[in-house]
């Protein structure tokens, strides 16, 4: 019973990792770059929602505040792509890694200057409500998290699999020049995907904030989300969610039955094992080039 309780809490946690990982995967799918600032975008999204929604700030209703935050974060991420990331278009991936690490620090500084470094709590309508059944307690926040994540994953998967823009984004990631030749507006698609990943990050941030206080350093959670994305295989949306769930469940279970440091290491150990045995992740997309 205790184990089941841990697993349910872990699933909800894993969904948040999975959502942040979805953001990585989206950008990876469209430009084959990895956005190391995704965790910080999640943090910024959560703070913007807090700024719109909390009564001592702007005091909008919760749903409206989240919508506003998503729109604003869409704009911010879209702008970041337009102004900064586009400058290194076509450069090796390494440049983007360093650029986004630096961007993450900028986001953190901005959030810290506006909202301060003391932890704040986002006011949500489902705080503190629990469902009980058969000796297990499930908080409403956990259920909402799991539900929203499932819906988002399916929606994004459908977006990339079936829509014109989604397919164009995948084409752009495989070969930019070829994508241009067949008429894909690569840069515009990239901006759009960045904006979308900002909105997804906001959802992740709000869901994270329903489970506890937030401060500008929660962006470091992004590192765990990487592990999730890599376990799933960068470039696979369901894989990212699966990776997030694996990490989310194993962490509390390891924390219960193993020393604390080992529990902290566990996501990375799993990730290394996956990388060593399957270098492209569980849903690998690496293919050999046939010459």
């Amino acid at each position: 019973m205790e184990l089941l309780q841990l697993v349910i809490g872990g699933l909800a946690n894993g969904c948040i990792y999975g959502l942040v990982a979805l953001g990585f995967v989206m950008i990876y799918k469209s430009s084959e770059g990895v956005n190391f600032a995704q965790g910080d975008m999640m943090m910024l999204g959560a703070f913007i929602a807090l700024g719109f929604g909390n009564t001592d700030q702007m005091g909008l209703p919760f749903g409206l505040a989240v919508m506003c935050a998503m729109v604003l974060m869409f704009g911010i991420s879209w702008g970041v792509e337009r102004v900064v990331v586009r400058q290194i278009f076509g450069q090796p991936q390494f440049a983007l890694v360093i650029l986004t690490i630096a961007l993450g620090f900028v986001f953190r500084f901005v959030a810290g200057s506006i909202w301060g470094y003391t932890p704040l709590v986002l006011e949500t309508p489902f705080a503190g409500q629990n469902l009980r059944g058969g000796g297990i307690v499930i908080s409403l926040a956990d259920l909402v998290t799991i539900g929203v994540t499932l819906v988002l994953t399916v929606a994004l998967w459908a977006f990339f699999a079936f829509t014109k823009i989604g397919l164009a984004a995948q084409a752009a990631s495989q070969n930019q020049m070829a994508a241009y030749i067949v008429g894909v507006p690569v840069m515009r698609v990239n901006s759009l995907i960045w904006g979308l990943s900002g909105a997804v990050a906001t959802v992740a941030g709000v869901l994270y904030a329903t489970r506890g206080a937030i401060d500008p350093n929660i962006g470091l959670l992004g590192i765990k989300a990487f592990a999730a994305a890599v376990i799933g295989g960068l470039g696979s949306l369901p894989g990212a969610l699966l990776g997030g769930l694996i990490i989310g469940v194993i962490e509390p279970v390891a924390g219960r039955y193993a020393p604390g440091e080992l529990a902290k290491m566990s996501p990375y150990i799993i990730m290394l094992i996956v990388l060593v045995t399957r270098p492209g992740g569980l849903f690998s997309q690496i293919q050999m080039k046939k010459v």
């Binding site: 990895v34 991936q93 890694v97 990487f226 592990a227 960068l234 290491m265 990375y268 990730m271 290394l272």
Partner: peptide
């Protein structure tokens, strides 16, 4: 094992190694 990975995977793997060493 890391040399089997390329580019971005190596960067992330070294990040993981860093966290593991820190806890060790």
């Amino acid at each position: 094992p890391a040399v089997r990975m390329s580019g971005i995977y190596l960067a992330i793997a070294t990040l993981a190694v860093f966290v593991i060493v820190e806890e060790l």
